[in-house]
Write a protein that binds this DNA or RNA. Structure first.
Length: 862
RNA sequence: GCCUGGGUGGCGGAACUGGUAGACGCAAGGGACUUAAAAUCCCUCGGUACUUAGUGCUGUACGGGUUCGAUUCCCGUCCCAGGCACCA
């Protein structure tokens, strides 16, 4: 064994050996229990960042741990390779998206290999390859057949910078999720997946995902946004028309005094014709339509509306309700119409005050009265019905059902539910994505491509255009085609491509049979490996990716391709990697490498003192980043992995600390040194297997501590993924190893030390695999630690000889004593009462009660 | 505004179903080794008071409560992070 721990030598060496042995290659084996561990695949942006390092380290520990437990572990990796950054980078660097993407993939694959991750690289996927997306196109055709995809012209979220449409899920506070540009509304023909057909099922099964963080399922539930209420029909005065509204408060129907329609609502234009209000209405509708969606979501957004010159009739009061077009009414939610009850809805209240509309309170709080003239805000709480004819006196919750039942009899209303979730718009006016496999024909309309013509290959040699516009519409050899139905020569292909979230909605299923060319998925492989037992990734995908994946899996199930609904049994959302920001008065945020260390850190460029800012998520813009490469060069993969796991539990944010990394490196060296010191002696013996009773002193303690540590580490990793406490426990064990004198020469010392060292190596194997294999080899083993079973502990060896019992008087700690572990409660109690330090506190007082907690604590109440 | 988390030493973080608060590491201080330094090994390390090798008081954001006993359970308040936000 080398004197010095040198990761630069041992890491490449073991990576070569693993590779040569094909240690990570797996196939279906019905005799073995499977375990599918998956980390979210990366976008090949150029190089990996610390977020990837952390995410993939966590996954790799689990993969190796499960492997040592005898599971047949599937642990794949691939690339979410379509997407806009490739186009932007290609334009900026005068290269091509495909070339840029493939080069990035090659580089990043190399980085991941340097980290020593145990991926089965034979299963690698890049979603931009036709062999992958052809099956996505195939599924699209199947979905089209079943009317699960449709095309409609609608207002869409449009980002001018990205020159494309964004799904609702991709708009954050009115801005593009990718570039931050304010999103505006644009009317376009778009393809949609009918995800809303699955809203109920997706919602209900949120509660059937006990292995998911509650935070994520709650976010999904809120996103789906089911609300219970009623649909009520209002007749329009002097017309055969009627307006349907959705309301969650049918109990307030008697207080509905006006009606608000979304500006895009078809009846707005229709009813305002020839009323004298037409001009004002048209002006208003046009103005709102052009307005940014972002302005609509601003907090102080002014509620405004315009009377459209028509009235509708309240079905229970007969009241003539003026109809308004209002900017806050959304066409996409419910029916696009709101029955306004100013007394019981704050927004309606403000609107009524602004336009001088009638307010009728119909639900009164139990302990006070409501008066329309003196109300200063709407009353939205529970209460007793008033001004509601036959329903007066009822509890308002009961009145909801009663009023809907009453309306139902007259066919004017019914109980219903509404969802916030909308259909998933998947069209993107971008080049670097999977082509949508349809053809537009002047005679036949929209025609699906023939299955035999798949894949519709994205031409990889297209020249990119200025401003990020897609070259496809201008690329005749792609666009021009014949109609699959009538054979017309002047048909043209759809030039929109699919949202890249489509690719990531099924890649985990494709990993089961990544080279299968007879279909999208090889059923037998999928049914062996799926579902994913443990999925790991960032919370930022809590809604988008995870909801789409759950939806897609349901679609695949409907086509008989898979047998389950939920793709991910357990989910872990790891925290962000953070670091303090550094800034210089002249240069703004600066990189850690541009700082001259010292009592007062200074900027390398101008020498001014550097201000240390708050700890924030590592990002290029804040320049508080650490390049994984520099860590690998300096400390190696094992130290990097160790620190990522030790500094914080996985679900929490991790604060990067240079000194912390150094500490992790020192820890490995500390093990290395002690192992070296004993190596000659312990290679000549074997691990101690006797009873602790034949041992004494630090050797005996070390033996027991080893068993205790195996138990603790197993528990921490298996049940909780708390690698930080598992590592702490191993550190304690190493400290115990140090308390055995290096020159100790007793009969069993070498055997026990060997046992301890072997255990340390095995327990560390998933965490620092190269280091562990090197030591394992030094101990004389030929197999990799990964091929060695996880150590077991013997409960008989765990028991401590002496226990410390603490004594409290009135709940305050007063004394403690050690006592033999098998002493019973009576003995412990007697010993506590006779304790001299305790005596001080109970002297002259009456002992009222004594509580004995088994082998731990005595509390004397006086 | 609503929904999730979270607030523990100088710092990152421990404490399983209420039972020794601060494991483990970092930083700091002291000692050993050394001509010296680095590295390494050992020790100390929440605050505070005193009669200072000891003992007491206090301490897990803040204020209450339940309990023999609360970082842990309950009620209220404040702060921080994330998500949603005119959703009828």
């Amino acid at each position: 064994m080398e004197e010095r721990y040198d990761p630069k030598v041992i890491e490449p060496k073991w990576q070569r050996i693993w590779d040569k042995k094909g240690l990570f290659r797996v196939t279906e084996d019905p005799k073995k229990e499977k375990y599918y561990i998956l980390e979210m695949f990366p976008y090949p942006s150029g190089k990996i960042h610390m977020g990837h390092v952390r995410n993939y380290t966590i996954g790799d520990v689990v993969a190796r741990y499960k492997r040592m437990h005898g599971f047949n572990v599937l642990h794949p990796m691939g690339w979410d390779a379509f997407g806009m950054p490739a186009e932007n980078a290609a334009i900026a660097n005068n290269t091509h998206p495909a070339r840029w993407t493939y080069e990035n993939i090659d580089y990043m694959r190399g980085q991941l290999k340097r980290m020593g991750f145990s991926y089965d690289w034979d299963r690698e996927i890049a979603t931009c390859r036709p062999e992958y997306y052809r099956w996505e196109q195939w599924l699209f055709l199947k979905m089209l057949e079943k009317d699960m995809v449709y095309r409609k012209e609608s207002f869409v979220n449009w980002c001018d910078d990205c020159q494309t449409v964004l799904a609702n899920e991709q708009v954050e506070a009115g801005a593009c999720w990718r570039c931050g540009k304010i999103v505006r509304q644009k009317k376009l023909w778009q393809w949609f997946f009918r995800i809303t057909d699955y809203a109920e099922d997706l919602l209900v099964h949120c509660d059937a995902l006990p292995g998911w963080p509650e935070k994520v399922t709650t976010m999904q539930k809120n996103w789906i946004g089911k609300s219970f209420g009623a649909e009520i029909r209002f007749a329009v005065a002097n017309s055969s028309q009627s307006i349907s509204v959705f309301t969650t408060r049918p109990d307030t129907l008697f207080g509905a005094t006006f009606m608000c329609l979304a500006p895009e609502h078809p009846l707005v234009v229709e009813l305002s014709r020839n009323t004298g209000e037409q001009a004002a209405v048209d002006e208003f509708v046009e103005r709102i339509a052009l307005q940014d969606r972002s302005a609509r979501t601003l907090e102080n957004y002014e509620k405004e509306g315009v009377f459209i010159g028509a009235w509708c009739i309240n079905p229970v009061t007969g009241y003539q309700m003026p109809i308004f077009a209002a900017n806050f009414a959304l066409m996409e939610y419910g029916t696009g119409a709101v029955m306004s009850v100013p007394a019981h809805d704050q927004r309606d209240f403000e609107f009524a005050k602004k336009y001088g509309l009638y307010i009728i309170p119909v639900v009164k709080p139990l302990d006070s009265d409501l008066d329309a003239r003196t109300m200063t805000e709407a009353y939205e709480g529970q209460g007793e019905m008033i001004h509601s004819g036959p329903f007066d006196g009822l509890d308002n919750e009961a009145a909801k059902d009663a009023i809907v039942a009453h309306l139902a009899k007259k066919e004017l209303g019914r109980k219903t539910v509404s969802f916030r979730l909308r259909d998933w718009g998947i069209s993107r006016q971008r080049y670097w994505g999977a082509p949508i496999p349809v053809v537009h024909c002047d005679r036949c309309g929209v025609v699906p491509v023939l299955e035999s013509q798949l894949p519709i290959v994205l031409p990889e040699d297209a020249d990119l255009l200025e401003g990020g516009r897609s070259p496809l519409p201008g690329l005749d050899e792609f666009k021009k085609t014949e109609c699959p139905e009538c054979g017309a020569q002047d048909a043209h292909r759809e030039t929109d491509t699919m949202d890249t979230f489509v690719e990531s909605s099924w890649y985990f299923e494709r990993y089961c049979s990544p080279r299968f060319d007879q279909g999208m998925l090889d059923r037998s492989a999928v049914s062996y490996w799926m579902p994913v037992d443990q999925y790991i990734g960032g919370v930022e995908h809590a809604i988008l990716h995870l909801l789409y994946s759950r939806y897609f899996t349901r679609v695949l199930r409907d086509f008989g391709l898979v047998e389950f609904k939920e793709p991910f049994t357990r989910l872990l959302t790891q925290g962000m990697v953070c670091k303090e920001t550094l800034s210089c008065p002249n240069h703004g945020f600066i990189f850690p490498d541009d700082v001259i260390e010292g009592a007062v850190p200074k900027c390398a460029k101008c020498g001014l003192p550097v201000a240390v800012g708050r700890v924030e998520k590592m990002s290029k813009s804040k320049r508080n980043v650490i390049d994984p490469n520099s860590l690998l060069d300096r400390y190696g993969a094992d130290t990097t992995r160790l620190f990522c796991l030790f500094a914080a539990p996985p679900e929490r944010d991790l604060e990067w600390s240079e000194q912390g990394v150094d500490g992790s490196f020192r820890f490995l060296n500390r093990i290395w040194r002690r192992a070296s010191a004993w190596m000659d002696r312990i290679t000549r013996t074997s691990a101690y297997q006797g009873s602790p009773n034949d041992l004494e002193g630090p050797v005996r303690e070390l033996f027991k501590k080893t068993h205790q540590t195996v138990q603790k580490v197993t528990f921490d990793i298996e049940d909780r993924f708390h690698f930080n406490t598992a590592i702490s426990a191993i550190m304690e064990l190493v400290n115990s190893l140090y308390s055995v004198d290096e020159n100790e020469d007793s009969a069993h010392a070498s055997e026990v030390v060997r046992f301890a060292v072997e255990s340390i190596v095995l327990l560390l194997a998933p965490i620092v695999p190269h280091f562990s294999d090197e030591l394992w080899h030094a101990l004389g083993y030929d197999a990799s630690v990964l091929e060695t079973p996880w150590p077991e502990f013997d409960p008989a060896c765990l028991a401590r000889d002496e226990l410390t019992v603490v004594v409290q008087v009135n709940g305050k700690l007063r004394s403690r004593f050690d006592i033999h572990a098998d002493a019973d409660d009576e003995v412990i109690k007697k010993r506590a009462l006779s304790d001299e330090r305790v005596a001080k506190f109970i002297e002259g007082k009456m002992v009222r009660k004594i509580i004995v907690v088994k082998k731990k604590l005595v509390n004397i109440v006086v």
